[in-house]
């Protein structure tokens, strides 16, 4: 308090520092903003084109003998992608209906069902598949890559992709009846 000395020059913040500060701040805000936007979006929406992905399949649940399938393999078919897990209670509500629907459409050759097993362990997943007698191609969502692609919010979720590879309908939560599944598929088959 006693030794006050006057410094002659008024020194503000140097220009380079100002630039660094503003760029840093804007960068931070931009990043948080983009993330927030992503979180707010929810799942991918009908109308979005789905980027191609590869689903490895559990042995015994292959498609036409192939150990893995690509979405693009199924151009010209209606694709139903179901995300599930063996630890997921609500998934059990729809498991039987999904299998029934598959049994109905498999012979037509125009519809393909894919089960993507989310954050699950293989032994338990097999027990689950056997318990509900599921036969359509099923495989683990390796590295949660596919679920990130669809930005799933939880399991079960089911995505209906039309013959041209465009997402048409999203079911969040379990189906309540076979009719619900059929209705969506018939709509897409009619095109």
């Amino acid at each position: 308090m006693t030794e006050t000395t006057e410094t002659p020059a008024r020194r503000g913040v140097p220009l380079w520092a100002q630039i660094v500060i503003w760029i840093g701040l804007l960068g931070l805000l931009l990043m948080v903003g983009v993330t927030l936007n992503k979180r707010q979006q929810g799942t991918v929406q009908p109308g979005d084109a789905i980027p191609d992905f590869t689903l490895p399949l559990f042995s015994g649940y292959e498609y036409a003998g192939k150990p893995e399938v690509k979405l693009s393999d199924f151009r010209g078919k209606v694709v139903v992608i179901n995300f599930w897990a063996s630890w997921c209670k609500p998934c059990e509500q729809e498991a039987a209906e999904l299998q029934e629907a598959w049994a109905l459409y498999e012979p037509t050759g125009q519809v393909i069902f894919l089960g993507a097993d989310y954050v699950d362990t293989e032994p338990e997943a097999r027990v689950y598949l056997q318990k509900y007698g599921i036969t359509f191609p099923n495989g683990p969502d390796m590295g949660t890559r596919i679920s990130q692609l669809f930005r799933i919010q939880g399991v079960p979720e089911t995505y209906f992709v039309d013959k041209t590879g465009v997402l048409r309908y999203v079911q969040v939560g379990p189906f309540s009846s076979l009719g619900q599944i059929q209705a969506q598929i018939e709509l897409l088959l009619a095109e």
Binding site: S86, W87, D120, T121, P123, E124, P140, M142, T144, R145
Partner: peptide, 29 residues
């Protein structure tokens, strides 16, 4: 709980800690 069961299974098959971790990274990211 299932993950822990899987770890137990893999340990009983003689896998090491780093092998198990590697497996989990490949499967779940």
């Amino acid at each position: 709980a299932q993950w822990r069961d899987l770890i137990r299974l893999k340990l009983s098959q003689g896998e090491t800690e780093s092998q198990i971790k590697q497996y989990f990274v490949e499967n779940y990211g």
